[in-house]
Write a protein that binds this DNA or RNA. Sequence first.
RNA 1: GCCCCGGUGGUGUAGCCCGGUCAAGCAUGUUACCCUCUCGAGGUAGCGACGCGAGUUCAAAUCUCGCCCGGGGCACCA
Length: 487
Amino acid sequence: MQREGRTGLPPLRNAVKGKTAFRLPPEPSGFMTVGHAMAFSINSLYKEMYDGELWLRFEDTNPRKASKRYYESFRRGVKWLGIMVDHEKNVSDDVEVTYGYGRKMLEDGVAYVCSCDLERVKALRFDGKACEHRERPPPESLAIWEELVAKKHGEGKFVVRFRGEMQSLDYSLRDPNIFRVIDHPHTLTGTKYTLWPTYDLANTIEDELCGITHILRSSEFHNELQRLFRERLGLRPVEVVQFSRFNFKGTPVSKRLLRPLVEERLVSGWDDPRMPTVDGIRRRGIIPEAIRQFTLQVGYTKSEHEYDWSLLYAVNRKLLDPVTKRLFFVPDPVHLSVERAPPRSVEVRYHPDKNLGARTIEARSDFFIPRADLDSLKKGDVFRLMDLYNLTLLSKGEEPAARYAGDGLVPDTKKVQWVTEGQTEIKVLVAGPLFDETGKYDQHSLTEAHGLVENAFSQVKVGDIVQFPRFGFCRLDSRNTMVLAHK
RNA sequence: GCCCCGGUGGUGUAGCCCGGUCAAGCAUGUUACCCUCUCGAGGUAGCGACGCGAGUUCAAAUCUCGCCCGGGGCACCA
């Protein structure tokens, strides 16, 4: 028992360097979330560790759910994360291949065509009893199958079922459905097919086709059935590692909870900075490397967890700190006129200890400082305009005024940020958790701060992240609108 | 209801398989101080946890049993 503990992800069973293959299998039925990002990162990290192959495979066998914009969302997210995908495919490309397996299963009596209605299937399944179709001779099943392939039957009349274990305590093994008719155009294949394989079968076949050696996925997937498929179809065994979903406090990743917010316009869209989507956290100023490092740090477990956002922020902050310019930002500004102010042109470094350059600020006699700072001072107090000079506060009231009080740095003087007259007014969006403790949408989850930024702000481009000292790290989202990442 | 899987400080984890070196490590959080032309980063110190009960043992976070609590599965969704 060594005290150092483990660093990085634990080794995988039966993993041979150079002979592994992993997959990212999203269903293109919603936007990519942080949860996907972390699960994908785990696969990507292992791909690197074992010098393996990585597939991006869209699980789009339900034409009612797949939509093109979602494929794009995942491609964009994967690219943003810097994940190197070796191959990309859609399960819908392989419908005919799954038909091949389907036919074979029917021929071998591993599956059969069932024409019970849904209620009956459920009832018999509950009782652990087979229906008469289970004994339907293969040629008869095959004949119906060909009609199904030829689109001669509508939805719900027939279903292809796997001959599983009707008595199994695991109900998912009680002759599950493996093909069904869905009479709805598919976003990619149009009306070409109406007979679609179900997830478990398609997934098993695809893993075989892609040569997947290790599956790392969250535990909402049950693997007994897929194991049984592999056994009956004589497919290669695969190592499966399951872990719990990645949840963040106050920000569930579930589409069921998120969709209403978008539809009711309680958020600005799927990329609202409060959203746990990749687009959302990117807008917010979380950088891809932070996701990667965070994933590496927390790893994966089977126990349920709810990450505190501060855990991710800490990683993001440490990455951002050395490369981010500091800019003066004065929230809730109050005008301050200064008597006997010597005109100055000061050069101020963009970073206290990293070499990020400097800017020159022209100072005359009018300034703006944060109201909160002024409030904390008393008449007669000496304070310092940071990087400039000292002042004595003369009056607070309506027209706050101060007098120049020397250049020398006086120990223990309060230092305040400042901007000169005529600077840019900006808005900073501050995103908090979408849901409160009781699980209700928090109406105040998005707040705004307003203030003035110094001239050098004009150099900041959309997408850039800067640090407003004492306020936080912010990303420029659009002209004069920033989003606070975190303190 | 049935079937899996989990429960280590506020949060996330390491340790559990192979019992002692664990009066439990790390990170985050928080408090104080140092450093710093405020913040942040960095440094130092403090705070804070083995779900409950029984058993096995010289010795249990680690093994066994029971209980409690939580999550997931039981779709013509993925």
